[in-house]
């Protein structure tokens, strides 16, 4: 299994940035890492993978453009660290951290630019 994974890693290196998982005992190397928006850092950007909530919150998030496949980036956080301001579809949206929890994002890079 490990050899297989290593081979995949080699093939991918030329095309994508390979992000090594923090825990190096992981069997597979993931080309991208999925992180909840809540834990993203300032200036980090990524593509939404899934919105894991329904009901009213889900509706609000989706109607504002937060749908799978949409690119977002973190502008910053309020002085008390909550809410978070993100850029999506050319506008700036603010969300509470506990709302940002449900937005799963594939981040392009680990380090903020």
């Amino acid at each position: 299994m490990k050899h297989h994974a290593a081979l995949i890693a080699v093939l991918h290196v030329g095309q994508q940035q390979v992000v090594k998982a923090k825990n190096c005992n992981r069997e597979e190397y993931e080309p991208m890492q999925t992180v909840a928006l809540r834990y993203m850092k300032k200036n980090q950007s990524g593509v939404i993978k899934a919105i894991k909530v329904n009901g009213e919150l889900g509706r609000r998030l989706r109607e504002m453009g937060l749908t799978p496949g949409t690119r977002i980036s973190v502008c910053g956080r309020a002085p008390l660290k909550d809410p978070v301001a993100i850029r999506v579809l050319n506008s700036i949206l603010t969300l509470r951290n506990n709302e940002a929890e449900y937005i799963h994002v594939e981040v392009m890079n680990n380090q903020p630019r």
Binding site: E56, L57, R60, L61, M64, P83, A85, S91, I92, L93, T94, L95, R96, E99
Partner: peptide, 10 residues
Amino acid sequence: PTPFVMELPP
């Protein structure tokens, strides 16, 4: 609490 999702207009 109900959603706070708010737009920050330019």
